[in-house]
Amino acid sequence: MTNNCRKLQPLRHASDDLKLVDALRNGHVDAAATLYDRYAVHVRKVIVRIMGMDQDLPDLINEVFYQAFKAINTIEDGSRLQAWITRVAIHVVRGCIRRRQRKRWLLFSPEREPQTVGIEAGASDESLEMVRWVRDVMDRMPADEQIVFALRYFEEMKIIELAEACGISRSSAKRRLIRSERRFKKIAEKYPALKKRLDLSAKWRRR
């Protein structure tokens, strides 16, 4: 009997993604919480890589999981739940960036709203300055270019992973990445601090 008890200890649909997806589709009581607990850290990282330490981070995380929960019937391969939820996160982030850009355009406000938070602590002034400028440059790029640039260089995704995460072909991902690099360089030229911090000139001129 004790053996039975031991054997049954790990029983939960949380044990693998396929079972978790089934449980979600069947409306099981605690499956949504399990999904959240398993992937919240990953989703937060994806959002932060693209948008930085944003003041709307809790709302964005919540929205990603809510959208995922509502769209759970659309997942084709339950064993690739992490890749799928990454795509949902990117979709939500893209929407958020576009909304903010539209809002700025409608309000004729060329200046970015200060969205980055919490960067006062835990890093040197030099690093913090660099983070601020990079985020500022990123914010002036189109949403799709921000996403591929961040996932490639901040999250260190390979092109194939990048393509899957964005739901585009590898060649499209490469083209979009090249466009984003050019745009980043162009905008970064206007930021002396960033220019100084990075060894931009030589390598960038070669491109």
Binding site: I61, A121, G122, E155
Partner: peptide, 23 residues
């Protein structure tokens, strides 16, 4: 250059995440 910049940025933001309560 981008990768080096990205690494530095990720390190800073990862440190900031240690106090983050968004989740």
């Amino acid at each position: 250059d981008f990768s080096a910049m990205g690494n530095e940025l990720s390190e800073v933001e990862d440190r900031l995440l240690s106090d983050d309560t968004s989740i």
